[in-house]
């Protein structure tokens, strides 16, 4: 019985090492937070578009939109900014996303100036079917954005189903985003 006490430190330590090992293997990233908004309706917003439309605009691009515009179809909401360097990393992925995935992507320029956001889209291309300006960042806060880029998947009923923090990669899109999009598109 007395001897047993002396094994306690070792036992606790082994548990700790296993737990560290699992934490490291699991790709644990302390900087990624789960969204508190999953399963909740998209927050109410009505944002204006940029003053000047991006040159790669096309007839379909809507300038400015509100949460009601998102109802009725599965849609990706992407928060971006011209000052955000990871957004440039993500941009080619977004550019390649729309047609292949058949899911509309709308962009909200977070804490950005109209001409800067448009300049960014003119330079790198416009992947969005609709662009809106969130200059004050209030809508971003309502979504629970804590660092751009962030991408939200919204279902047909306007419920937030998924959030991805950080630049989207082709792998993340194929593994996480698109399967979720398909499921939501097929459900009523």
């Amino acid at each position: 019985m007395r001897r047993f006490l002396y094994i306690v430190p070792l036992a606790l330590f082994i548990a700790l090492v296993i737990y560290f090992f699992v934490a490291m293997r699991g790709g644990y990233d302390p900087s990624t937070l789960p969204s508190a908004m999953i399963g909740k309706p998209v927050p109410t917003f009505d944002l204006p578009g940029p003053l000047v439309p991006p040159s790669y605009a096309g007839p379909r691009v809507k300038l400015g939109f509100s949460n009601r515009d998102l109802l009725g179809h599965v849609v990706l909401v992407n928060f971006f900014a011209s000052w955000c360097i990871p957004c440039r990393v993500e941009h080619p992925v977004l550019m390649g996303l729309g047609p292949a995935a058949d899911v509309p992507v709308v962009g909200i320029a977070y804490k950005d100036k109209s001409q800067d956001a448009v300049g960014f889209l003119n330079e790198y291309g416009n992947p969005y079917v609709a662009v809106a300006m969130d200059e004050g960042g209030r809508t971003g806060i309502d979504f629970g954005v804590y660092g751009v880029p962030e991408t939200y998947l919204i279902d047909k009923h306007g419920i937030i189903r998924l959030r991805y923090v950080g630049p989207l990669t082709a792998e993340v899109v194929a593994r996480e985003i698109l399967p979720a999009v398909r499921t939501l598109q097929q459900s009523p």
Partner: peptide, 8 residues
Amino acid sequence: IVARYGDF
């Protein structure tokens, strides 16, 4: 604020 960002 918690409603938007969670208990974190």
